[in-house]
């Protein structure tokens, strides 16, 4: 039975708190007062619906969606996974957007001042809609690590940013995916702002050798879980 009720209360203990002083920018951008807890209404249960006609054919192919004179430099890879809710139900037709640095750790962004080279054939963003079973997939090159101004010698582990819509606006989530085995992971103040070790580990995508394409691309698996929701059988059946 399809569930259509309110979403489960968000478990904030598995998220980073707003204030994580190890990540310095959070100090002045974190609310200090308690969040106001409110009943959900249609404002929260509903959310924008996206259609396949809004997504271009190359939007999930970062090897080709900004190719000008050839393909981007770097390790070819596939990233794929499922979007599920907390009841392990697949979420179909939800928009997944992603962005990343190029193979040398440089972003195509007017504010990125890192000295590493821009790749003329790499835009660094894409998007996909999940299929009927909640699967998304995209192809790209593996992003490089890069330095950032936090402590003077802080380096981001290689990562991909994800933005995910569920079926309701209260499922909205932005997160980052990391790569199995990256030695920078344990030094990362952003990832380590998450207090729960299991929650941190679930942001680290394992190598998925079965999904790799022989002689072509490695693959990484990243499943995403959005908030689940109560059934409304009794409310509807009264």
């Amino acid at each position: 039975m399809e569930k259509t009720g309110q979403y489960y209360q968000r478990d904030r203990l598995i998220h980073p708190p707003a204030y994580t002083p190890g990540y310095k920018t959070s100090v002045l951008r974190s609310p200090r007062l308690a969040l106001l807890s409110v009943e959900q209404s249609l404002s929260d249960i509903t959310g924008p619906v996206f259609g396949a006609d809004e997504i271009g054919l190359l939007d999930n192919d970062l090897l080709r969606n900004y190719a000008k004179t050839g393909e981007p430099i770097g390790e070819r890879m596939i990233v794929h996974g499922r979007v599920l809710d907390q009841d392990a139900r697949p979420l179909a037709g939800v928009l997944v957007e992603f962005w990343q640095a190029n193979a040398s750790g440089k972003y195509r962004h007017v504010n990125d001042t890192y000295k590493a080279a821009i790749d003329p054939n790499f835009g660094g963003c894409g998007r996909a809609l999940t299929d009927a079973n909640g699967f998304y997939t995209f192809r790209s090159i593996k992003p490089g690590p890069y330095p950032w101004r936090n402590r003077l010698n802080d380096w981001r582990p290689a990562h991909i940013h994800f933005s995910i819509f569920g079926h309701g606006f209260s499922q909205r989530l932005i997160t980052q995916m990391y790569f199995e085995g990256d030695p920078l992971i344990r030094h990362c103040p952003m990832l380590n702002g998450i207090p729960d070790d299991g929650a941190r580990q679930r942001l680290i995508a394992p190598l998925d050798l079965n999904a790799s394409i022989p002689l072509d691309s490695l693959a990484y698996r990243f499943d995403i879980v959005l908030r689940g929701r109560r059934g409304t059988y009794f409310e509807n059946g009264q």
Binding site: P16, L173, I174, T175, R202, R227
Partner: peptide
């Protein structure tokens, strides 16, 4: 239940 995926800054 599965845990929701943890948020990270944009």
């Amino acid at each position: 239940y599965l845990d929701e995926t943890a948020s990270q800054t944009a």
